[in-house]
Structure formats: C-alpha cells, structure tokens
Computed example of a mutant assay.
Amino acid sequence: MAAYQFAGDFAAPPSKHRNKGGDRLCSCGIFRCCFGCCWRIFRCGLGCLCNLVCQIICAVLVIAAIAMLIVWLLFRPSNLEFRAGEASLTEFSLAGNTVRYNLALNVSARNPNSRLEIIYEDIEAVGYYHGQEFASDRLPAFSQEKETTRTITAEFEGQKDVSLGDEARANYEEEKSSGEFPIDVKVQLKIKLKVWLLTSPFSLKPSFDCDLNVPLNSSGKSYQGTDCTFDWRNIDLH
C-alpha cells in the first residue's frame, strides 16, 4: 500500500514548464485587473470631482442671482436718463443709393440711483435714416457711480448704400432744401448693476432711442437738444 502510494506520488510530479507559463499568465492577469480597477477608480473619482465643482458653481450663481433679485426688489432702480445735448452734422448727402455722412453726437448719460453703480460693458450706437441703417459706432466701456452724469460721444463718418423708396427720396429733397435731416440714433447697451461690493452675475440689455432733427452746420440753424427714450430689455444669463 505504501509502495503504491509512493509510486503514485512519483508518477505524477509537477510540471515545471507548465507552472512557469501559468505564473506568467497569472501575473499578467493580476496586472491587467489592478490597472483596470485603478483606471475605473480614477475615472469615477474625476467624474465625481467634476460634478461637485459644477454643482458648487451653479449653487453660487443661483445664490448670487437670488441676492441681486432681492436687491432689485428692495431698491427698485430708476430708469437711466439719456439726452442728446449736442450734435454736429458737417455732411449729409444722397447720391443714387449712397449716403455720405459726418455726424458727431454728444449724449449725457445720467445714473439717478442713489445706491446702484452702473457698469457699462458694451455700447453700440446705430444711425438710421428713414428706417434704413447707414452708420454704427462702438463706444468704450466704463463704470458710472451713483447719482452722476457722464457724456459719451458717438461719431459717424463715411458712406453706405441704402435702399430708399420714392417717398423717402422726395422727403430727402425737401430736407436738403431746409438744411435739416431726421436721424434716429438707437443705442444698445450691455450693463451690470453693482451694489456695495456685489456685482450682478448676469447682464442687462437695455437700449435708448434718440429721435433727432439735426441741421447741417452750413445751414446756419442751431440744433435743439433731444431727450432720449430709455427701455429695459432682456436679461442675459450667459
């Protein structure tokens, strides 16, 4: 019995070649398993971190927006006031479909609010003649303190092709004879409100419209200042 067991044990020695291969396969499998697990853990952690950061940013924006809404409701900001006080028109002529122009316009911008500072991020003035756009000018950004007035200047110079109907052309001839032209200047704003150290996280896009009758400088007539119409527009959350 003992001999049989010894013979059986002797007849089935472990294969060194097979074990070496098995060790290699086992080692590679463990490496791939560990690498895959680490990579999945890293991706999961990175994704969780990104989600956390996004949630924090969204929460801060929402809180800031709610705070500014409360400020808006508490202080009820008054409309900004604009007046086109000075205008100089040295050239305005129509030849065929081409308008040639040279207009300088000084506009006084007043912030009547006692607690709100206005941050002008973008200002674009566009000139229209009988409903046709003929000129534009982008003005520099600035900040305006509470209860202050500041003068901004729009300058239009150049030429542009416009599409005028027969009635508008007939009106032009009459206006040329009188030396005075109806020019509509629309100004689009992009602003933020500031209360103490808190600045609104969103932008407002109000506009104002100056409906002018501007005489040519050579006509000898004087320009009469014009109050502009202010209008609150939409809120830009970007």
Rank of each mutant, 00 (worst) to 15 (best):
C48P: 04
C48H: 15
L49N: 02
C50D: 10
N51H: 14
V53R: 08
V53L: 13
V53H: 02
C54R: 13
C54M: 12
Q55K: 15
I56D: 10
I57E: 13
A59Q: 09
V60I: 14
L61A: 07
V62Y: 15
V62F: 12
A67Q: 11
L69D: 09
I70Q: 08
L73N: 10
L73V: 05
L74S: 07
F75C: 04
N79F: 13
L80V: 07
L80N: 06
E81M: 08
G85M: 08
G85S: 15
E86W: 08
E86D: 12
E86K: 09
A87I: 03
S88P: 04
S88V: 08
L89P: 01
L89T: 02
E91W: 02
S93V: 02
L94W: 01
N97L: 00
N97D: 11
T98E: 15
R100C: 09
Y101I: 06
N102C: 11
N106S: 12
R110P: 04
R110Q: 12
N111H: 01
P112F: 07
N113H: 09
N113K: 03
L116I: 15
I119M: 06
Y120D: 06
Y120I: 03
E121P: 03
D122A: 08
D122V: 06
I123Q: 01
A125H: 02
V126H: 02
V126R: 07
Y128P: 02
Y128V: 01
